[in-house]
C-alpha cells in the first residue's frame, strides 16, 4: 500500500502506558504481512517452492515454527501454515508464492488486515495467559521453536514462546476483547503498554 494510505491497526485507540514495575508488558507489532498458506506436505514441490521464495523450510512438525530474519512460518494444520513478515510485503510475497506454487494443490491468501501480532513480556506474562488459556505454557512443555493455536477465554489465538515472553496472533475483530481481557487479568501484576 502506498505511503499516502492512513492505516489503523486492530488495536487503534489503546493508549500507551509505559510503567517500569509492570508484571505484564504488551506491545503490538502492527501492520505485519500475514499470508495463509495451504498445500500438500506429501508433494516435495510444495516445500521446495516455499523455500525458493522465502528461504525457509516449511515446518512440517505440528505446532512448530521456522524463522529467518523478520519472516516466520507457523504450522497451523497438516496442510496449513501462516507466514508473518514485515509490513508492506504481503502483495509482493503473495504474487511470488502464487507463481512458485502454480499448478500445485495449494493456496496463498492475504489476511494481513484480519489479524495483528502482540507481544507479552514481563515477569507475569505466562501467568496472565494461563488465566484464560488451557495450554501448558511451562517452558518444559512449550518452548522457543514451538507454536500452538488455542484460546484465551473465548478469543481464538496463535501463540509462540519468545525467549522472554510470548507472541500472540489475534484476529482483528477479537482484538478489543483480547486487550480488555488481558488488561483486566493483568491488574494484579501491573500492566503496561509500550511501543
Amino acid at each position: 500500500m502506498s505511503e499516502a494510505v492512513r492505516l489503523q491497526s486492530p488495536l487503534v485507540g489503546f493508549q500507551l502506558d509505559a510503567r517500569a514495575d509492570a508484571g505484564v508488558i504488551l506491545r503490538e507489532r502492527a501492520f505485519c504481512s500475514h499470508l495463509n498458506l495451504r498445500g500438500e506436505q506429501s508433494d516435495p514441490a510444495f516445500a521446495a517452492a516455499i523455500k525458493q521464495v522465502l528461504g525457509l523450510e516449511v515446518p512440517f512438525t505440528p505446532n512448530t515454527t521456522t524463522s529467518a530474519g523478520d519472516q516466520t512460518l507457523y504450522w497451523l494444520g497438516p496442510d496449513e501454515w501462516l507466514l508473518v513478515a514485515a509490513p508492506e510485503q504481503a502483495a509482493t510475497l503473495e504474487a511470488a508464492l502464487r507463481k512458485a506454487l502454480a499448478g500445485q494443490f495449494a493456496s496463498v491468501v492475504d489476511i494481513s488486515g484480519g489479524q495483528t501480532v502482540v507481544e507479552l513480556r514481563g515477569g507475569n506474562a505466562r501467568d496472565v495467559l494461563a488465566k484464560g488459556c488451557p495450554l501448558d505454557l511451562h517452558p518444559r512443555a512449550f518452548g522457543v521453536g514451538q507454536c500452538a493455536q488455542s484460546h484465551l477465554a473465548k478469543c481464538p489465538l496463535l501463540l509462540r514462546p519468545l525467549a522472554d515472553g510470548f507472541e500472540v496472533v489475534v484476529r482483528r475483530s477479537f482484538s478489543d476483547y483480547f486487550f480488555s481481557w488481558i488488561e483486566d487479568a493483568a491488574q494484579e501484576y501491573g500492566f503496561s503498554v509500550v511501543s
Binding site: M1, V5, L7, P10, S112
Partner: peptide, 30 residues
Amino acid sequence: AAGVAARVVRISFSGELSYEINVNANAARQ
C-alpha cells in the same frame, strides 16, 4: 478505492442500485 486495493461488487440487498467495496481492514477508515 481512495488509493487502496479494492474489490467492488455490484450487488443489492435493498433492491436499489448498490455497490459493496471490499478493502484491507487496516485501510477501512480511509
